[in-house]
């Protein structure tokens, strides 16, 4: 099966962020990792009842500022300008990570290089590099109640990122519960990967061909709602 999927069928980063935002439930405290996950702040509604945690000490992060309204002292985990949502609280780094390890994060959304069928996450070092960026990923992934991996389905070289066993260095073992890619939404279950949603126009067999592990298909399979 050809693993190349027509470019126009792939979800954009923005579309993926919209889909992830829909998943965040009222009352949740959610950490959004740097890169694609933090884009999700654009689509979390002010009335959605979600409190966004940023590892650098923000509990209650808002969407990106409008141009010209940036505050140099208010930045997200990627050191980009952000805003404080109504009711935000600020803490120092040790308290910020106490919150993460202490079980107060209902969910963390993190980028990924690879996810295995048992939910192991790799996202900090490429095997060819001598070192990499851990940042807060290990603490947050090991502390959060649920971890959503948000990533392209394939690497730029066309290699599947969903695998039976990690071949990249581990960030945290058995942490990922759900995967949001540019072609699918997949849950990580005791039985392995289960395909829940597929991008409009992409076939189940194509998703299977792009996944280097067994992929079960949910009885309630649907298109990714847009």
């Amino acid at each position: 099966m050809e693993t190349v999927i027509a470019e126009n069928l792939l979800l954009s980063r923005e579309a993926m962020a919209k889909r992830v935002a829909q998943e965040l439930q009222a009352g949740w405290v959610v950490n959004l990792g740097i890169g694609m996950p933090v884009l999700t702040t654009k689509y979390v509604g002010a009335d959605q009842g979600v409190i966004v945690h940023s590892e650098n000490g923000i509990i209650g992060m808002g969407p990106p500022p409008r141009e010209g309204e940036e505050d140099d002292d208010v930045r997200n985990a990627g050191n980009e300008p952000t805003t404080l949502a109504l009711g935000a609280a600020l803490v120092h780094q040790a308290d910020s990570f106490s919150l993460a390890r202490g079980g107060r994060l209902n969910c963390a959304v993190l980028g990924g290089f690879q996810v295995s069928t048992s939910g192991d996450l790799a996202n900090w070092r490429l095997p060819k590099n001598p070192t990499g960026n851990i940042g807060g990923a290990m603490d947050i992934a090991s502390g959060a109640n649920e971890v959503f991996a948000m990533m392209s389905h394939l690497t730029k070289q066309g290699e599947p990122k969903l695998v039976e066993e990690l071949t990249y260095p581990v960030t945290t073992l058995a942490c990922v519960t759900k995967i949001f890619t540019d072609i699918a939404v997949i849950t990580v279950t005791g039985e392995g990967f289960v395909l829940e949603e597929v991008a409009s126009g992409v076939g189940v067999e194509q998703v299977k061909a792009c996944t280097a592990a067994p992929l079960l298909v949910s009885d309630a399979l649907q298109d990714i709602p847009m």
Binding site: E55, I134, D139
Partner: peptide
């Protein structure tokens, strides 16, 4: 190289 939360703690 130290994970960020471990570094702070």
């Amino acid at each position: 190289l130290v994970p960020q939360g471990t570094l702070a703690e």
